[in-house]
Nucleic acid binder design. Sequence first.
DNA 1: ATTATCTTTTGAGAAAAGTCAATTAATCAG
DNA 2: CTGATTAATTGACTTTTCTCAAAAGATAAT
Lengths: 187, 187
Amino acid sequence: MKKNFDMFDQFPDLSEEAKRAFEAELDVISVDKGGLLEQEGQVCNHLYFITEGSARSFYTRDNKDITVSFSLEGEFLTAMHSFISRKPSYENLEAMEKTKVGRIKYESLLKLFEKHHDLERAYRLILEQYYITLEEQLIFTKFKSARDRYLDLMEYRPKIIQRASVGQIASYLDMSIETLSRIRARI
Amino acid sequence: MKKNFDMFDQFPDLSEEAKRAFEAELDVISVDKGGLLEQEGQVCNHLYFITEGSARSFYTRDNKDITVSFSLEGEFLTAMHSFISRKPSYENLEAMEKTKVGRIKYESLLKLFEKHHDLERAYRLILEQYYITLEEQLIFTKFKSARDRYLDLMEYRPKIIQRASVGQIASYLDMSIETLSRIRARI
DNA sequence: ATTATCTTTTGAGAAAAGTCAATTAATCAG
DNA sequence: CTGATTAATTGACTTTTCTCAAAAGATAAT
């Protein structure tokens, strides 16, 4: 069976045993549009890999829904803060369309680390990638106008603009819906 | 010899061998106020632990110096983005006063990981802590007014207000020097 | 001490983005 | 298909914070 997205592509040094052991712990899940993979208030127990579709992470503040990140096919996804700290998550993970994911439990992952040193390293790389993305986002937000943040998103992640709503994009880019709407009108 | 800050306190599960092996690779360095531990444009090759003093990370933009983080005694420190990615750093690490650090080379750390699985785990925990701090900073910045960001810093990290200049604090809190000055006047 | 330099404070006006309100467009359920 | 609900756009006005400029205060060197 051919897969479009192979999570191991990013980890060419993984041993075959490690890959097999990891795959044995994977659950494959299908979620409809709007379905939640993880909910705020609960400890996030899974690391996901998206094989089809897309998802976003968001939290709620003053009854508003604030998007933290978008994830597309071929990307790993979790509520990292909770997954790491084992504390209840403030994030929800939601499918933005019909989406297929592979997921592994936190406990299974830790167990695998005991036997497969190289899996712990691969996990470290995922964590590092998460860190870099976050740091770049922080710097990126800090120096750009609302308009430039939108133009950057268009340039670097155009698929997101196609798949996400104005409200989701606006909160992700840290601006009001109205501001985003005006920016789009004047491009 | 008594140490005020022991970096292993945070890692009670580390084996004695791992601690010894790690310590054997540590260099102890002393830096005067204003001295640079790492410079922008170069790959950051060290993970630091501050035993005395304090440091900050900053970068330069439009000839302005923007503080990214402050670190005090008992904390680990590096230009994480560069340390992880092995690309030139955009950050400088600067001692804010006479400061003593222990540091270990990136390569030494990787070598230690081969023999000491538990050290790789400890490093993962440092990385996770870095991630959490960054994520909290991102959320924290997003929802608070300039005034509340300052009040939060006063509450949670008062030592920083004592040791850093207005300019450093202002850029860290993402506001102009003038705004910070006005906030301080009206407390 | 005294000048020079750098930092901090204060004031006034400008700009970016936000809020509230009204209208138009899109989506969804029956 | 069609009314109902939700999402997006547009306009008017407000707010926050920034920038520029000048004054006051601190620090350092001679």
